[in-house]
Amino acid sequence: MARHSQTEVAVLGALSTGSMTGYEVRRAITEVLGHFWHESYGQIYPCLAALEQSGAVRRSGRGRTSGTVFQITPAGEDRLRALLAEPHTSPPARNGLLLRLFFGAHLADGEAQHLLQQARDRASTALDEYARIRDESVVEHGRSREQALREVTLSFGEHVARAQLTWAQESLATLAALDAPHAQGAPRARG
């Protein structure tokens, strides 16, 4: 699925929960999907214009913040269902932390460890946030399909954060073991 189509999914998905301004669409995406998806205003407003032109959304007046309110149309609901049914393709990975670590031999002493400590701390914070979200979620007897699917996405975040935490801790231990002989006066190998 092309990046543009995924923006459509995010925008149409947000509007499927109710009419809102472009600002409110961005806020809904940030607050609800922000743990695994983001869109900028520069992506949302052109997308809204294209969706309006195609008939997938329509303007329904002015909002509280003086912005134009958009509403999903039946054609937009059909478009959302079609986009959601398309096969998912992942873009090539781009991980700035791994890029820095791969070339980390050029970093000053301790900088790689500092990067890993930051990654460890971010993963730990994410796990705390996911626990808070899970605690706030009301799991009812016979929960809805929507609740179950949202729980699945929360579970993914938890698994990824735990894996990142474990990886960061193991990586810190690996670097500490390399530094141990250096601390005892032996020359440190670079490379």
Score class of each variant (00 low, 15 high):
L48C: 03
P74Q: 00
A75M: 10
E146N: 07
Q147F: 12
H114Q: 07
S155L: 13
E158S: 07
W37V: 10
Y45T: 13
V9I: 14
D78S: 11
N95A: 02
D179W: 00
L115V: 10
A93D: 13
A119W: 09
I72M: 06
L154R: 12
G18N: 07
T7H: 07
A112C: 05
E31M: 08
A108F: 11
D121A: 15
A75G: 12
P74C: 01
M1R: 03
L98E: 14
T21Q: 12
R100Y: 11
L172V: 07
A82Q: 04
Q117H: 13
P74W: 07
L149D: 15
R143T: 10
H114W: 09
R190S: 10
Q147M: 14
V69M: 15
P87G: 00
F156W: 14
P87N: 04
G61E: 05
T30S: 15
G104D: 05
A126S: 11
G67C: 05
S40C: 03
I44K: 01
R26Y: 04
A148D: 08
Q71N: 11
N95W: 04
P87R: 02
V57P: 06
T174Y: 15
L107W: 01
G63Q: 08
H35K: 12
R122T: 14
A85I: 01
R3N: 00
E140Q: 15
A85F: 03
G76H: 01
V32I: 11
A93S: 13
Q169I: 05
R162G: 04
Q117M: 13
R27F: 08
L175P: 05
A186N: 12
R122A: 08
G34E: 10
V139N: 05
P91H: 13
L48E: 06
I133G: 03
E111R: 14
A85Y: 03
G185K: 07
L149I: 11
L178M: 03
Q147I: 10
R79P: 07
S19Q: 11
A56I: 02
P87I: 01
R132I: 05
D179L: 08
R81M: 00
Q53N: 08
S66P: 01
G63D: 02
G76W: 00
A105D: 15
R26G: 02
G142M: 09
I72A: 04
D128K: 10
Y130V: 03
A49I: 14
V57R: 02
N95E: 06
D128M: 05
H106F: 08
V57H: 05
L33W: 13
R81Y: 02
D78R: 12
L115F: 03
T89Q: 02
R64A: 14
E8P: 02
T7I: 14
L172D: 04
A105M: 14
T17P: 07
I44A: 00
R79W: 03
T65D: 14
R120K: 12
S60A: 11
H159F: 02
H106A: 10
R62A: 04
A123W: 08
E52C: 06
A10P: 07
F70D: 01
P46C: 05
A93P: 09
T153N: 08
S66Q: 13
G191F: 09
R143D: 09
R58Y: 03
W167M: 10
E8W: 01
A50I: 02
L48V: 06
I72V: 11
A163Y: 09
F36A: 11
R94A: 14
E111N: 02
Q117S: 06
T153R: 13
A123G: 13
E136T: 03
H4F: 12
G63S: 06
R150F: 09
A56E: 04
A2H: 10
R58P: 06
R26E: 11
